[in-house]
């Protein structure tokens, strides 16, 4: 109870500080989400069209995904220094894996009868992709986006270890000055951000899945 009241007290006293941390958290996460989204989607399309590249690219993505996030941040410091840039690069590397996996699964999972009909009616390769495969894979791809968004929002929480901004600043400061309420307050905001994003994307995913089946 004491913790909750001190958290509420923190939000009241330092509302502007938390708001600015929240905004920079969103900005950081959003940059990584956009980058991972574009790179992951592109790689997923490439490996589903040229399947012989699939094992290599999936393998690399899987290996990168297994590196603990804090160590990935550390590994990057000598190359890209400290600060937001390093954080965004690390989170993008994480986010690419679920995007590639779901894009690939969605595109290769389209009913072969539908593809044969589309091809037999004279679709070009790009018409097949944009008019048939991508719309039909949209539900599965959105599930990947959802997964990636939640993960990136969470991982952004430790980006302050390499000097980046975001709510991780509150968490880190709470730890160093032994103020558990401050750590908890930062964590709660991250959790709320993740839950709300997940809920909204879930709605979108449901719409596309209903249309696609």
């Amino acid at each position: 109870m004491e913790l909750i009241s001190s958290i509420l007290g923190l939000f009241k006293d330092r509302g502007a500080w938390f708001a600015s941390l929240l905004l920079s958290h969103i900005a950081l996460a959003f940059s990584a989400i956009i980058l991972a989204g574009i790179i992951g989607l592109a790689l997923g399309i490439v490996i589903s069209e040229k399947q012989r590249f699939a094992p290599v690219i999936m393998g690399v993505c899987n290996v990168l995904y297994t590196i603990p996030s804090i160590s990935l941040l550390g590994i990057l410091i000598p190359f890209t220094g400290i600060g937001n840039k390093t954080a965004v690069i690390a989170m993008t590397i994480y986010g690419v894996m679920p995007m590639v996996r779901n894009t690939y699964a969605g595109l290769t999972g389209v009913d072969p009868d539908i593809l044969e009909a589309a091809k037999g009616m004279g679709s070009t390769e790009s018409q097949m992709l944009f008019r048939i495969k991508l719309p039909l894979a949209a539900g599965v791809i959105l599930a990947g986006i959802r997964n990636m968004v939640v993960m990136i929002i969470a991982v952004t929480g430790i980006a302050s270890f390499v000097g980046a901004g975001g709510l991780g600043v509150a968490i880190y400061r709470g730890i160093t000055i032994y103020n558990p309420a401050m750590t908890a307050a930062g964590s709660i905001l991250i959790a709320l951000l993740a839950i709300i994003s997940d809920f909204l994307l879930g709605k979108l995913e449901k719409y596309f899945r209903k249309r696609g089946s």
């Binding site: 009913d111 009868d113 539908i114 593809l115 044969e116 009909a117 589309a118 091809k119 037999g120 009616m121 004279g122 679709s123 070009t124 048939i132 719309p135 039909l136 249309r211 696609g212 089946s213």
Partner: peptide, 20 residues
Amino acid sequence: KVQLRRTIGYSIQNVGLFPH
């Protein structure tokens, strides 16, 4: 082939209607 297929109607057993 693409142009050719557009001038030939094609209908298969499982129809292959586009669900979206």
